[in-house]
Nucleic acid binder design. Sequence first.
DNA 1: TGCCTGTTAAC
DNA 2: TTAACAGGC
Length: 469
Amino acid sequence: MWFRQDLRVKDNPALIKAAKQSKVLPVYIYDTSVPQNAVLGGASKWWLHHALVALQESLDGNLLVLSGDPQEILLSLCTQHNISSVHWNRMYEPWAIARDTAIKKALKASECDALSTNGSLLWEPMQVLKKDETPYKVFTPYYKNGCLNAPDPRYPQRKPPLSFMDDMDEVKGYQGVDSLALLPRVNWDLHMQEMWNVSEQGAQCKLEYFIKQAIEEYNDDRNVPSVAGTSQLSPYFHFGLISPNQAWYAVHDAFNGSRENKGVYVYLSELGWREFSYYLLFHFNDIQNRNFNTKFDNFPWVQDKEGLRAWQQGKTGVPIVDAGMRELYQTGYMHNRVRMIVASYLVKNLLIDWREGERWFWDCLLDADSASNSAGWQWVAGSGADASPYFRIFNPILQGEKFDKEGAYVKKYCPELSKLGKKFLHKPWEASEQELLSANIVLGKDYPKPIVDLKKSRVRALDAYKTIK
DNA sequence: TGCCTGTTAAC
DNA sequence: TTAACAGGC
């Protein structure tokens, strides 16, 4: 059993098949031959480390952890140990598909069977097509007509009874989780240790809590970054510590199959957006590097290293943007509403190519995921499938005032602003000298002056858009 | 899950 | 002065 982004023992279809067939040798291979843009970022590595430790425990210490080229490793394991078949759950990143296809071929050539299964999507991208057999490009018909009318997704399955291959310790090249050196050398992960229980049980706890406490208010509360109104399951989904099927059916079972509650409906449709991202990645495969809408290939992005740096460090002078970017850097996570705000700011107010934002998120997010990350950025930039129209430009002041009314979120991550009253918290540059003084703030010193004028940069963005219209 | 601007109407 | 609304980007 080759584990990849399915680091769980419950509802793991490939593991079930492997266990049914014979004794199992569970393997995780840290792939050292992935393309540059698929090398894991620091936050992802941290998550992976803990996820592997937890999986190791669930498998009673029988998980073989190696690093190197998966093809070489699998082939040599098969010959050395007389293994008759290799099982895995599919990945959908184009490079992973290419890799897995080659491995399948190589295994079969050396008389080892290779079997892949869908373990991470509710609906296989191949099986949801329009009547003309081409893929959907718009979310609503994809979800409503395509997915909801397709056969129901697999109901989650239990952990199978497992018996493992013997003489594990004898396996040549066994390295162990620590040898992958996934943890950071400096201690920037203290916050994360406290925030996340990185395990299958951790995922189930989050899910249960969310269904009991938050899902019915999800439609409103999910927009307020100071409230725990979202499921916070995204990092668990990425490495497969939970399957979408487990979430989908836990919600349906809790509400007797009804999707009438608005929060329930909207949450499930968010799982649908996750599916849609993978669907686009599968059918149009280069969405990580290329504009889905090729008009944007001529978009006049600006080269602005200083602006990019200020954005990355949370020093743009716009409180809600800075708070979000600091949350990301400190915790490996960012609230979804704030992700949209900071992304809109980078792409529209700073006019920086969405790929720069995509890269930064990839490095910093615990839930970094090619499909969701690319689709999300292209959605904001306006270049994606069924994207937000380019003229829809967030005003970060209004967004702050609307969704962080009391300023709790901004104050948490920009403590230097904590004495500033509500009136100017989201626009400190408009506060009078007096007001700033009594809040102990010198603009440009304690907190940055805005690096761009919001009105002017908005007009500049609209002008830029006209050039490719 | 957009925001701005101009118009109208009520006070 | 303000709210509500429509149209445009």
